[in-house]
């Protein structure tokens, strides 16, 4: 898809400078949450979008990252962000462990196997005292030093998330143009055909998953650092996996900016309906949220990217 350069530049500047443009804390917080959702969805996109392997168990890596940060805080007294390398290391090992057997599966079988693996981990963590079992873990109640990265204002988080997202998108862009990008595109087109062309299918699926799991784990660490609390539902619930898929699919899976676009649409939608109808329990938020993604899938199965293409085609017709 040919991107309209001025739109992209203005859009990115808007996202980057959001906390300078708005002074309302609620809106600034929404901005940070958009970036966080964009990080996890972009990380998912590496394996789910580019390689076309629809994992619905990515919450496992997110949870590992989130738990790692609060486990090192609770048991060793380290700042939560110091858990990032631990989380990434464990996630990579976990990805190799889950990926090696499941990548032999195709289509829905693969998706279901990833769900089962993630649920397995959720149930184990809900009963494991070291990680707080069903109660969960808390972050530092008051920041001890600057390194705890615990702020009342969402603005520092915004820039931290922005930096991570920039690195992730940079890596994705490089990957897309490299040999690996072409291999993954071939795998997405059909892994039997790719194999017959000499693409080492299993190996490259695994590379994509390792890259993806590492960044997803980082997203988990960032989440735990910002929120300062993690329990099996908020860190390992299946809804989180599905949300990563939905954000990426809505914006356009397998495109560089698709997940960011999806996050820019869905996160404010969720926060706004929550704010208007009240968060806890009423559930109207989810009715509206569900209805909107259902309608988009019904009328534009290709996601927002398809609407975008439609607009471009319309403009091309009318310019001529």
């Amino acid at each position: 898809m040919k991107l309209h350069l001025p739109t992209v530049v203005v859009g990115l500047l808007l996202v980057a400078l959001w906390p300078v443009l708005v002074h309302d804390v609620f809106l600034q917080r929404v901005g940070a949450l958009v970036l966080l959702a964009a990080i996890s969805a972009s990380a998912w996109n590496l394996v789910g979008g580019y390689a076309g392997q629809v994992s619905v168990g990515h919450v496992a890596y997110f949870g590992v990252g989130a738990y790692a940060s609060l486990v090192v805080y609770t048991h060793l007294g380290w700042p939560p962000l110091a858990g990032a390398p631990v989380g990434v290391a464990v996630s990579l090992a976990l990805a190799a462990l889950i990926g090696t057997p499941t990548f032999r599966l195709r289509g829905h079988y693969f998706s279901m196997a990833t769900i089962a693996a993630a649920e397995l981990i959720r149930i184990l963590c809900s009963n494991w005292d070291l990680v707080g079992a069903a109660v969960g873990l808390m972050g530092p109640p008051v920041p001890r030093t600057m390194w705890d990265f615990s702020f009342i204002s969402p603005v520092p988080y915004h820039y931290l998330f922005l930096a991570v997202l920039a690195v992730l998108l940079g890596v994705t862009w490089q990957m897309q143009r490299s040999r690996m990008g072409f291999y993954l595109a071939a795998i997405r087109g059909g892994d039997r055909a790719a194999r017959s062309l000499g693409v080492p299918v299993l190996r490259y699926k695994l590379y994509a998953l390792l890259l993806s799991a590492g960044f997803t784990s980082l997203a988990g660490t960032l989440y735990a650092t910002m929120v300062g609390f993690i329990d099996p539902d908020s860190g390992l619930g299946i809804l989180l996996s599905v949300k990563m898929v939905i954000v990426a699919a809505l914006g356009g899976a397998g495109t560089l900016f698709g997940p960011l676009v999806g996050a820019v649409i869905l996160v404010p939608l969720e926060e706004a309906t929550n704010a208007v109808f009240g968060g806890g329990g009423t559930g109207i938020t989810f009715i509206i949220y569900g209805a909107i993604i259902m309608l988009i899938a019904r009328f534009r199965p290709g996601g927002v990217a398809e609407i975008w293409r439609g607009v471009a085609a319309w403009r091309a017709r009318h310019a001529a």
Partner: peptide
């Protein structure tokens, strides 16, 4: 694509579940 099916049926699931809640 399969992703559209996930979007569509998961949206339906949310609508049904929370409509029942309500």
């Amino acid at each position: 694509p399969m992703l559209a099916q996930i979007l569509g049926t998961f949206g339906l699931a949310l609508v049904l579940r929370y409509a029942a809640f309500w």
